[in-house]
Amino acid sequence: MTKNMIFTPPAHPWPSDCDHDAIVLIGRMQPGMHLGHQELLERGLERAENVVVALGSCFRARSPKQPLRAVEREASIRSCLTDEQNRRVKFVYIRDYYDDQRWCAAVREGVQSVTGKNAKIGLIGHEKDRSSYYLHRFPEWKLFNELCVGGLNGTDVRALWFERDHERGAEAVLRTMLPEGTFDFLMAFKKLPDFESLRKQHYAILRDAEKWKAAPHVPNHSCGDAVAEFRDHVLLIERGGDIGTGTFAWPGGFLEPDETVIECAMRELIEETKLGILPEYLKTFIRDRELFDNPWRSEAGRRMSHAFHFVLDEAFAELSEGEFPFVQGKSDARRALWLPKKKLPSLEEYMFEDHHLIGDRFFHYA
């Protein structure tokens, strides 16, 4: 181990067949660690003195697929470990970028922050399906591709956790899938107000998916979003509706059959905020645009968003300093509000789906 290593010296010899300083385990582990994760972690500890758990999808708003904050996941995982294991396990938090190059760089940087530059790193995981492609994005780390443990996955854990009609039976099954610490944490979380909101959103997504079951192919929905800027402030809405309730978002919605994506973004902006401007005039203030089409960006299905950046300083130039165009939340927006652009980074954990990254595309703050 090198001098600049942050890890403390090992208290006992490593396994004789391993010469790695640390093993990396990457995963979202939502909602918490199941027995498969625990087995991978313990196998990692058999191969190196330390394991670095790189928690994925961090710094996001709560949602049915991402119900727990990173600090909550770490706490629940640590509750499943012995004191000696806790000493040897480190955590780094990784956000989603929907950009492999940025994401891999963030993982490497996070791991290096706790191992030092010259550590010999291994990577442990289970290649279950296409979503496991990331295991091959780190060729410099030896890959330990492990067998699946019990066929467990987070999707089934979340479905049982949210189960409403047969709650007691679902909890009994969960006990067989989770370490005691994870189970106790999830049962305690059920008593919090956030849980019922997440459960309602879970069932709303299931109802929406049911509508499309008879479709001959997976539906691909197009949306338009409007990123409106005025004097270093941006226009956000607080979402109502069944999905993403209470999160902040850029005004936007589904493309209608008889409109272009630009028309969609402008219509949604005016409908949801009551911004007083004619579409024909609004269109002249488009400064940039981007397509957001990552297949996993929305929990509610395949949704592609065409985002447009509007700079409205000239459109409302008659307003005095400190005045802003009148806005009011309408349609499925609880409210609409102007916020200083500099506050956007602090709203990351309160933004709907990938809307934090939509803002970052135009304002470069993440």
Results as ranks from 00 to 15, higher is better:
residue 97 Y to I: 03
residue 97 Y to F: 15
residue 98 Y to V: 08
residue 98 Y to L: 08
residue 99 D to Y: 01
residue 100 D to S: 13
residue 100 D to R: 13
residue 101 Q to T: 08
residue 102 R to H: 00
residue 103 W to S: 01
residue 103 W to D: 00
residue 104 C to Q: 13
residue 104 C to K: 12
residue 105 A to V: 02
residue 105 A to K: 08
residue 105 A to W: 02
residue 105 A to R: 13
residue 105 A to M: 03
residue 107 V to Q: 07
residue 108 R to E: 14
residue 108 R to G: 01
residue 109 E to D: 14
residue 109 E to L: 10
residue 110 G to A: 09
residue 112 Q to N: 06
residue 112 Q to S: 10
residue 115 T to E: 13
residue 115 T to G: 12
residue 116 G to W: 05
residue 117 K to F: 11
residue 117 K to E: 15
residue 117 K to G: 08
residue 119 A to T: 09
residue 119 A to V: 09
residue 121 I to P: 05
residue 121 I to A: 03
residue 123 L to R: 11
residue 123 L to D: 06
residue 125 G to W: 10
residue 126 H to G: 07
residue 126 H to K: 07
residue 127 E to R: 02
residue 128 K to M: 09
residue 128 K to Y: 04
residue 130 R to W: 12
residue 131 S to A: 13
residue 132 S to Y: 02
residue 133 Y to N: 06
residue 133 Y to Q: 11
residue 133 Y to K: 11
residue 133 Y to I: 07
residue 136 H to A: 12
residue 136 H to F: 15
residue 136 H to P: 01
residue 138 F to R: 04
residue 139 P to N: 13
residue 140 E to W: 01
residue 140 E to V: 04
residue 140 E to I: 03
residue 141 W to V: 10
residue 143 L to Q: 07
residue 143 L to G: 06
residue 145 N to Y: 00
residue 146 E to Y: 02
residue 147 L to D: 14
residue 148 C to G: 14
residue 148 C to Q: 10
residue 149 V to P: 00
residue 149 V to T: 14
residue 150 G to I: 12
residue 151 G to R: 07
residue 152 L to M: 14
residue 152 L to K: 11
residue 153 N to V: 08
residue 154 G to L: 03
residue 155 T to A: 15
residue 155 T to F: 10
residue 156 D to N: 11
residue 156 D to Q: 13
residue 156 D to T: 12
residue 157 V to R: 04
residue 157 V to W: 05
residue 159 A to I: 01
residue 160 L to V: 03
residue 160 L to Q: 06
residue 161 W to H: 02
residue 161 W to N: 02
residue 161 W to R: 01
residue 162 F to W: 00
residue 163 E to L: 00
residue 163 E to C: 07
residue 164 R to L: 13
residue 164 R to V: 11
residue 164 R to T: 12
residue 165 D to S: 14
residue 165 D to L: 14
residue 166 H to N: 15
residue 166 H to V: 08
residue 167 E to Y: 05
residue 168 R to D: 02
residue 168 R to S: 05
residue 170 A to T: 04
residue 170 A to G: 03
residue 170 A to Q: 02
residue 171 E to C: 06
residue 171 E to D: 06
residue 171 E to V: 03
residue 171 E to I: 03
residue 171 E to T: 00
residue 172 A to W: 00
residue 172 A to K: 07
residue 172 A to L: 08
residue 174 L to D: 04
residue 174 L to R: 07
residue 175 R to W: 07
residue 175 R to D: 08
residue 176 T to A: 08
residue 177 M to F: 12
residue 177 M to L: 15
residue 177 M to I: 07
residue 178 L to I: 10
residue 178 L to T: 10
residue 178 L to E: 11
residue 179 P to Y: 00
residue 182 T to G: 10
residue 182 T to R: 09
residue 183 F to R: 09
residue 184 D to G: 04
residue 184 D to W: 04
residue 186 L to E: 07
residue 186 L to Y: 06
residue 187 M to W: 06
residue 187 M to E: 14
residue 188 A to L: 04
residue 188 A to Y: 00
residue 188 A to K: 13
residue 189 F to G: 01
residue 191 K to R: 14
residue 191 K to M: 11
residue 191 K to T: 13
residue 192 L to V: 00
residue 192 L to H: 10
residue 192 L to I: 00
residue 193 P to T: 05
residue 193 P to N: 03
residue 193 P to L: 05
residue 194 D to A: 09
residue 194 D to H: 03
residue 194 D to N: 02
residue 195 F to S: 05
residue 195 F to E: 05
